[in-house]
């Protein structure tokens, strides 16, 4: 290398120009608590067990979601619908226990695709953090849709079927 090359003055100046350019570039950081990133329309977050417009659960405990699940995060116990429970469950069979282990779940959305009854969907909600493993096993109490707070999956459905 020649003397001029060994002083490294030009490469240093070049490098400093690069950093200087970055001083005026658009920032990639979001000012998080004040700003949040917009969620994708098909974002795969926490699951929900859908109810129909009368408030009856769609799920018939067929088990296809549990079979489709690559992480084996879903377990369920089926039960038969009794007389007088028609307003609670849509079909004759329903899931008495339906649990998803959110620590095992990889949020792939295969359960959603496998479901023949449009009973399970993934929402854009994020599973809440906790310091206890038990808190991540979501039972029906956490999964079944709240009637006062309904989800509309029409748009999401469209995206998925188009794909």
């Amino acid at each position: 290398m020649s003397f001029a090359e060994r002083t490294y003055i030009i490469p240093i100046l070049k490098g400093m120009m690069i950093t200087l350019k970055h001083l005026f570039m658009k920032k990639v950081t979001l000012d998080y608590p004040k700003m949040t990133k917009p969620m994708a329309p098909v974002y795969r977050g926490k699951h929900i067990l859908k109810r129909d417009e009368n408030g009856a659960e769609n799920c018939t405990a067929c088990g296809l979601c549990a079979v489709a699940c690559p992480a084996e995060a879903i377990t369920m116990v089926a039960a038969e619908r009794k007389k007088g429970e028609e307003n609670l469950y849509r079909e004759e069979k329903y899931a008495a226990i339906y649990e998803i282990n959110m620590l095992r779940c990889i949020f792939c959305g295969l359960c959603e695709e496998a479901c023949p009854k449009e009973a399970i969907f993934l929402t854009d909600e994020i599973v809440k953090p906790s310091d206890l493993r038990e808190n991540f096993i979501y039972g029906k109490d956490k999964l079944v849709e709240d009637m006062n707070h309904r989800y509309n999956f029409a748009k999401r459905q469209k995206h998925i079927t188009e794909k």
């Binding site: 950093t19 970055h22 001083l23 570039m25 658009k26 920032k27 950081t29 000012d31």
Partner: peptide, 13 residues
Amino acid sequence: KIAGLFQDRFGPN
């Protein structure tokens, strides 16, 4: 602040 700006961050704000 300058470290943040150089690295496309905000720095303390």
